[in-house]
Amino acid sequence: MSRTIFLTLRIWRQETPEAPGGFRSYRLEAVSTDLSLLEALDQLNERLISAGERPVSFEHDCREGICGSCGFLVNGQAHGPQAATSVCQLYLRQFADGATLTLEPWRARAFPLIQDLAVERSALDRLLIAGGYCSVSTGQAPEANALLVGQEQARSAFDTATCIGCGACVASCRNASASLFVAAKLAHLAQLPQGQPERARRAGAMQAAMAAEGFGGCSSHLECEAVCPQQISADWISWMHAEARH
């Protein structure tokens, strides 16, 4: 049922990576609970622009939880309080009238800040460049049904392939580890026959790249699993540790 609430947004503002940052509070009056949090930020930005102020920078694109562009901390939680939800799918009906929401950017050494809530996550792509693929060129593929994959195996591979690369796992980890991201990609390909020929090399190369990019190690706090909008299981991290010895 549609209703309106009052919200206070306490937002991290930082114009450049070098400039000092700090929180600023903005009050949203009578905002509809049918809006998403990002749409509330849109409204705030329109207000700031008309008042001659700099709008809040935040990353976003598809606004349906699949592109992985959006992401920041809401009251200390990556993507906010709703499980299995990226922040673009977080609707204001999740919040009580009069609530204060503190919005902060991902904080991780491998994710340098750009502005306000936006950070640079290209380090994740560099992990994929290290080996997150099957080396098959266009035109080399055998007939699709020549490779049989059991239904359960395909489902499990899909569950790990579904990672959207948002970086929430890194941002919520006290070591800023990308273990869940790397484990998910390794598990996706290792569970399929197509991924076997390069399996060992891929595991070694991607884990080495993770260390080189400044991501930390895993110390099994499992926050990554709790915040993952795609609900990828942290069991895959344990699996990855065994995979390194494969």
Binding site: A141, P142, A157, L189
Partner: peptide, 8 residues
Amino acid sequence: QCVAQGVP
């Protein structure tokens, strides 16, 4: 082609 790349 997609299957060969590992599309599940």
